[in-house]
């Protein structure tokens, strides 16, 4: 009995909490695809999905069932274990980052001291799913595009890392809950960190392979990118992890710059923090869709030169500015 209370019950309790995070996340991913199609349709004066269910709200369910029902094809010369493992790994990595995200005051699975560092570590592992998917397919388009995707990801990860350094300097902590609490006097997006916030938005677009930086799956050049050879559930896993990453990076933006679960004005404090958090994340996700409907795709060399020659120097300069501000308190 002691064994049960000491070891087993905490384990079960953690499993329940993980379930409570993952299940709504998958629902959110499904309805993000629906929202994306509806928003794009509205911006292009179309109707969007409107057949399955009222206003087409059951469309994601139908899509999911369709993907589950398809056959999974293994290319003849593929490295089978890695080929199957890559999407599972990508999916797994996109879920474990959620462990440190605080949804409200104290509503967090693991309130660790180095939360931000953990997020950088997880996002640096993200690359492997793509790289191994491209390599193990043993086909030239996936391989080329996975190299391209990885080069893009690691250059923009650097930018995001420097952005995080600025926020850490400003907040004085690596713990995400602490960072949110230090924004009670004013959200970081409306302070000295405003340029950094803009850089973060641009870098996030590149980091999640979204328009206008969706070169890893630029269908006009390299078929469908690194998941050309994938079908059925394996493809669905890449798809899910991509959208889960979008939601993750939006939540990080909300936590770091937009005050997390804090309400914008004190008069609205009666609304629970978790609702504020979700509303802000939804608004930030809307930026992704808005940009997708608006901007044309960049060329690859332009993408790299923006990352290395514009965003990185500016954010490094801002590290100096922010640390001077923090030290001397102008």
């Amino acid at each position: 009995m002691e064994f049960f209370y000491e070891y087993l019950w905490p384990l079960i309790w953690i499993a329940i909490k993980i379930g409570l995070i993952v299940a709504p996340l998958m629902g959110a991913v499904a309805y993000l695809t629906y929202a994306e199609r509806k928003v794009l349709a509205a911006m292009q004066l179309r109707k969007g999905p409107n057949v399955v269910g009222p206003f087409g709200v059951l469309q994601p369910v139908a899509d999911g069932i369709k993907l589950l029902g398809k056959e999974m094809i293994l290319p003849a010369e593929a490295d089978k274990i890695i080929f199957v493992g890559a999407p599972i790994f990508a999916f797994f990595i996109s879920l474990i980052a959620w462990a440190v995200i605080p949804f409200g005051d104290g509503l967090v699975l693991a309130d660790i001291n180095v939360g931000l560092l953990y997020l950088i570590a997880v996002s640096s592992l993200c690359v492997y799913g793509i790289l191994f998917a491209g390599w193990s397919s043993n086909s030239k388009y996936p391989f080329l595009s996975s190299l391209r995707a990885v080069a893009q990801l690691i250059s923009y990860e650097l930018v995001i890392g420097v952005v995080f350094v600025c926020v850490i300097l400003f907040a004085g902590s690596l713990n995400l809950s602490e960072i949110v609490k230090s924004q009670e006097d004013g959200w970081f997006a409306f302070t000295l960190l405003f340029p950094i916030f803009i850089i973060y938005i641009i870098a996030v677009l590149a980091e999640t392979n979204r328009h206008p930086f969706d070169l890893p799956e630029g269908e006009s050049e390299i078929v469908a990118g690194f998941h050309t050879e994938y079908s059925s559930m394996a493809f669905a896993m890449f798809f899910l992890s991509e959208y889960a990453n979008m939601i993750l990076l939006s939540s990080i933006a909300v936590l770091l710059f937009l005050g997390g679960w804090l309400s914008p004005i004190p008069a609205l404090d009666f609304i629970p923090g978790i609702i504020w958090f979700f509303v802000k994340v939804a608004l930030f996700l809307f930026i992704f869709l808005w940009v997708r409907a608006t901007l044309p795709r960049y060329r690859y060399d332009q993408l790299m030169s923006i990352g290395w020659k514009v965003l990185l120097p500016i954010s490094f300069l801002w590290v100096v500015v922010v640390s001077a501000y923090v030290t001397f308190g102008v």
Binding site: I112, N113, V114, L117, Y118, I120, A121, S124, L125, V127, L131, W135, F143, L147, V150, I154, E157
Partner: peptide
């Protein structure tokens, strides 16, 4: 924990990827 995550970021996130680039090509 600081050392642990720095190890993942630098070795798994940067150095191993460079190795992979070379070996895959």
């Amino acid at each position: 924990e600081f050392l642990a995550f720095i190890l993942i970021i630098i070795y798994a996130g940067a150095i191993a990827i460079l190795f992979l680039f070379v070996i895959m090509m």
